[in-house]
Nucleic acid binder design. Structure first.
Lengths: 194, 194
DNA sequence: AAGTTTATTGACTCGTCAATCAACAAAAAA
DNA sequence: TTTTTTGTTGATTGACGAGTCAATAAACTT
């Protein structure tokens, strides 16, 4: 039965199952067996490919970040002018793919892990650095030396909206989140113009 | 040796130890033994007084929220005018007592729990309701029917700043957080005036 | 004095789960 | 064809930890 070249297929299945299960249970307390079962294999195989549960979760987060990064790059390429670029970043942040329950739940648990686990901390730093740099470079032409500060507060706003998304009951509403973030931005820029 | 009337003393010690240990370990995976040890008693006694680990953690969060609530009430009583009231709420949110590492770490883990544990969910809803109502009533005279929207975005901002606080390394800096939140507010209000 | 309530803990139960291992199967390489 | 590499799992290990319990003791009640 063993077909060759299963590794990437299995890994992808595990990564997706990890996200689903963590979203379902709401914490990192999911067992490897649960994840493996959802991915259609034994827990031993999951360990075989990833070595440890933490490694599995980190791979899942890398996957989420990769998708997000691709969406941001797409939006940046299509955007016209600095303001369009910022709108693009924000819309990507709250797009249905990234702002869905499971992904946001994964983020929440990732934050917990990043407090103490160095690999998670590093990964988070990379992500935050990219977001920050994207925001700053788009803001620079609009806000000059206020770019850093605005990027900072926009970043906090985005995180806060993610957090509220996990905590609220009811269906996700990316549109409202984008609206709030955009209003914040708009208002900051308007202030600069004054 | 048993002195009577130990219950409140033990409970308080446990509540404080819970916060410290969760802050130290960074997750809810602290053992009851660790907490009990820090509080200077056996784990059996901790179970005797609280029944379960979750109950213990909820008591810790109630404690944190009580302190915060007291500080907010104090600030509101001393504040002059609606804008002063909002500033008071924000300053209380980021005061050294509430914005310290341990407390913020406890919040992060509380959010995780509130995703799924109904008692935590209820407690969070109560807290969020109070914050929202405080903000809205202070904002009403300044922003009229935009009060709800501003309260919403200010709330998200506060959560986001808390989150960033746990994640960043280095000493806590409540002052900068207040500054960011106040700027956000100021800018929202300025926009209303236009 | 006898009985009850409160405080306290060491020892134990019971369950769970990450990680490992031995073993089996099929494809590819030699 | 033998050997090696890749895929796969059931069973097991080993550790850990929440919650219970029996037992001990001091204080308070009657």
């Amino acid at each position: 039965m063993p077909k060759l070249g299963m590794e990437p297929i299995r890994k992808e299945a595990l990564v997706k199952a990890t996200i689903v299960e963590i979203g379902r249970v709401g914490s990192l307390d999911v067992t490897v067996s649960q994840i493996a079962k959802r991915a259609g294999m034994s827990s031993a195989l999951a360990h075989h490919y990833f070595g440890s549960k933490e490694e599995m979760f980190l791979a899942a987060m890398r996957h989420i970040m990769t998708l997000y990064g691709a969406e941001v790059r797409g939006a940046l390429a299509a955007a016209e002018g600095p303001e369009g670029r910022i709108r693009g970043i924000l819309r990507a942040s709250f797009s249905p793919g990234n702002f869905r329950r499971e992904a946001v739940g994964a983020w929440l648990n990732f934050w917990v892990l990043a407090q103490t686990a160095p690999p998670a901390k590093r990964l988070l730093a990379i992500y935050q650095g990219r977001l920050r740099s994207n925001l700053v470079s788009a803001l620079r032409p609009l806000a000059g030396d206020r770019a850093e500060g605005i990027a900072e507060s926009l970043g906090a706003m985005i995180d806060g909206l993610y957090l509220r998304e996990v905590l609220k009951s009811g269906p996700p509403d990316g549109a409202e989140a984008v609206a709030l973030a955009l209003r914040h931005l708009e208002v900051e820029l308007a202030r600069g113009a004054v």
